[in-house]
Design a protein around this nucleic acid. Structure first.
Lengths: 358, 358
DNA sequence: GTGAAAGCGCTAACAC
DNA sequence: GTGTTAGCGCTTTCAC
């Protein structure tokens, strides 16, 4: 059994050097790879490394100038399928590019988020990626701009993913996907089937992602010249439970609608269960659509018509953009397209809806 | 606007010291918190820190002896709902305990996993947590034991979560949940409804989690004195697609069964869709059960009867055990219980099954 | 209470 | 080729 040096602690480069009968610098060189070293020395050093089971301290390397660059990734909730997908993309791309990736899920807690960003700064992260909508308040803008400045001044970079963009000039990279466009197309599809009273299950009113999707809903109606009923737009959040509760309440209150457009597939899942429990058939009585196209969407019954968002791709892109961006401090802004994927949860109107017409 | 020191780079403790007109040691002390410093000095230092927007380099701190401890978390696929849940638990508990958490998803690639563990060692992580089953081969045991030794020698610790345990004596903490027991109870439930030909959708044959669940399936049959048909046990993996494909094939081949027991909720989701596409009603014609109780399970139609595994709790526990363990190098072994949650996907036999009775 | 100096584990000139 | 000497940015004796 290979044992460590006497004190049982980790061994240092000097221990290796001593055992191999060379200087620390030499050890560093053979481990470094490219520097010319004589074959015999190299062999000896390598043997010592093996015998001591030596692994260089990454922090020390980092501080000395070498070292693996790091990257921070912050999301609301790693448990949400769409963000998990993104996390996957981020993680893959980061390691592909030789970066370490620190992940933090904040549970929507702003303080936690701030803490983590600070930590990333302390780690001298090459970039920190923030994902997930949020409120676009003046406080948000100034706070985030400050963060962006701080990061930029430290040679790092802030990437906003699906988040409210900042005022022009702020040193951030923002990558968005088209919430309004996707929702517009989706809603147009539903309208084209003859639906005129579409229940919209939104998110938190101040949440920009939710807003974008709602704008799409509204715009599609406007384009078709059909009026929207404010009573049909319900706030909530992006969870399954929110969809369930809102739908239940809508049903109990006797709201009149023939379709529901959920702001998220998770919300749609909850809505579907609520509908089913109430004996409402989908899409027979009521049609249903979601947003995100999470893997599960097609296993729902009926398979859910929804909007595909390229989350994993988004994650990869965020990393690549943040890391490979030219040295320009200019802010960049990317908008990824989305498209609706039609499955079986939308039917032509006529089946009835849930309430007696007018 | 607060600007950095001249070169635009990050400022160091010396920059702060200079600006505050004190020594670096003093800055370190006021930032450290507890050391006695005069009120005026403290104020000045703090002001300098603010003006310079100074954030101490975590790597340098770490190397100097202070610094935030780190913890590594490795999983197959962060996209899988159950592991995402665990990741959440791990992440929460780690930050609660003041640890940084590095997450890596390996996509089942052993080399990637080895790399990451090496990285964690280089980061001098306090512990590394490995989750997800795998093959319990001699190679696995010796390789992992070596890793455990290396980590232990470096003052760190390996935690195996739902992974094949090592030979006794290896310095690891293993936390398992009861696959066999859960599967046994679940299968017993299905059998109690009169089912006698239950299709088992397993995982990779060498995968210990899959094996445990299969053992439970077998044991439940044995306990009831019902014979099992090997043709009814299909291998696959833990994905939704695998469940879909296997079920489809079983149907095409005219396999005779009245229930399907999927080794995972994801697999069950795929199976459900395949069944539905074939016009087989669940649970009318065929009953279906899963394993994991992922959040989505109840939004499937019919709501899925499954086994609840406390994944998030598991993650928290892994962190706590790894970090708060006494200084004893003894190996620990925890086994978490599971329980079946009955929903509506199992019916009494009689509806028929999918093939003409023998 | 505060500063000077040593040192954490490593890399990178700069000699020879 | 290889060793010596400086650092990297921080903390922590040890003096004063």
């Amino acid at each position: 059994m290979t044992r460590k040096n006497a004190d049982g602690g980790r061994s240092t480069i000097r221990d290796v050097a001593a055992r191999a009968g060379v200087s620390a610098a030499t050890v560093s060189r053979v481990l470094g790879g490219v520097y010319p070293v004589s074959a015999t020395t190299r062999t000896q050093v390598l043997r010592a490394v093996r015998e001591l089971d030596y692994v260089a301290d990454a922090r020390a390397k980092a501080i000395a100038g070498a070292g693996t660059p790091t990257l921070g990734f912050v999301l609301d909730d790693i448990t949400g399928p769409s963000f998990a997908l993104m996390a996957h993309g981020v993680e893959r791309e980061a390691t592909r590019l030789g970066h370490l990736c620190l992940v933090c899920s904040t549970d929507g807690d702003a303080a936690h988020e701030a803490d983590f960003i600070e930590t990333m700064r302390a780690q001298r992260a090459a970039a920190v990626i923030l994902v997930g909508g949020g409120a676009d308040t003046p406080e948000y803008r100034s706070r985030t701009a400050r963060v962006a400045d701080g990061l930029a001044a430290a040679g790092s970079r802030l990437v906003l993913c699906g988040r409210p963009p900042l005022d022009p000039g702020a040193p951030v990279t923002v990558i968005e996907y088209d919430n309004e466009g996707g929702a517009y197309a989706l809603c147009a599809h539903v309208l084209s089937k003859g639906h005129r009273r579409i229940l919209f299950l939104g998110g938190k009113p101040e949440h920009t992602t939710a807003q974008g999707r709602e704008r799409g809903y509204l715009a599609a109606h406007r384009a078709r010249g059909v009026e929207t009923d404010p009573a049909l737009r319900l706030a909530g959040d992006f969870t399954r439970d929110s969809g369930y509760r809102s739908t239940r309440r809508a049903l109990e209150e006797g709201l009149d609608f023939t379709a529901v457009m959920a702001s998220t597939d998770m919300v749609a899942a909850g809505a579907l269960t609520a509908l089913r429990e109430a004996g409402v058939s989908v899409p027979g009585d009521v049609s249903l659509v979601g947003y995100d196209d999470i893997p599960f969407a097609r296993d729902l019954y009926p398979p859910l018509t929804t909007v595909r968002v390229p989350y994993e791709e988004l994650g990869r892109l965020a990393v690549r953009t943040a890391l490979e961006r030219g040295r320009s401090a200019a802010d960049e802004h990317l908008l990824l397209g989305t498209h609706v994927v039609v499955r079986d949860s939308v039917g032509a109107v006529g089946g009835g809806g849930v309430a007696p017409a007018g």
